[in-house]
Amino acid sequence: MKETVLEQEILLLKGLARNDKKSTEEIYKQHYNLIQALVVNNNGTADDARDIFQEAMVVLFEKARSGTFELNCQIKTYLYSVAKRLWLKKLQQQSRFTEEWNDAGSLVRVDDDLEAHEQKDQDYNLMHHSIQHLGEPCKSLLEAFYFKKKSMQEIAEAFGYTNSENAKTQKYKCLMRLKKIFFSQYKK
């Protein structure tokens, strides 16, 4: 019996790593209420719960993607441990304290993962900020090429460049500018 639960969880994590909607939905369905209870019982709102759960899901997503998820614990325990740490931190930041910690779940050590997550989160925000400050048409151009994986020919047509060589030159310049903005903050 235990074997099958484990196998199921491995499948779910593989799906999660691919951003497969079914797997993500399954994990969401199974564990959301537990995390919401944790947050709501400890001085939080339903909106807080949603934020905390989704951030914990991002941590799990990264863990699954890196392929280092060792199944020495269940997804449930992992999510619960991460969410608890995230929520405690948020409470501290807002100087809101919960007098008595209402704790039900079992815990595993997640320090390293959270530290890595914090760095990644900062990088994410910096990238977001850099892209927002890039201006048009650079923003759309880079998004079309790197995120939507459009070809240079398609981009040239969509943005009105005479040929894909021109679009390529423009893309290069935009990329250099984005790198300049990103790295001017990154080193600090």
Binding site: K29, Q36, A46, D123, Y124
Partner: peptide, 30 residues
């Protein structure tokens, strides 16, 4: 960094979509 940014954005989008769906269905208590 850029690839991860893109992956996270897509992941956030699907999380939000799933949340809304599950909450409307009543599968989760949100």
């Amino acid at each position: 960094r850029m690839n991860r940014y893109n992956e996270w954005q897509k992941f956030h989008a699907s999380l939000n979509e799933i949340h809304t769906d599950l909450a409307t269905q009543g599968t989760i208590d949100s």
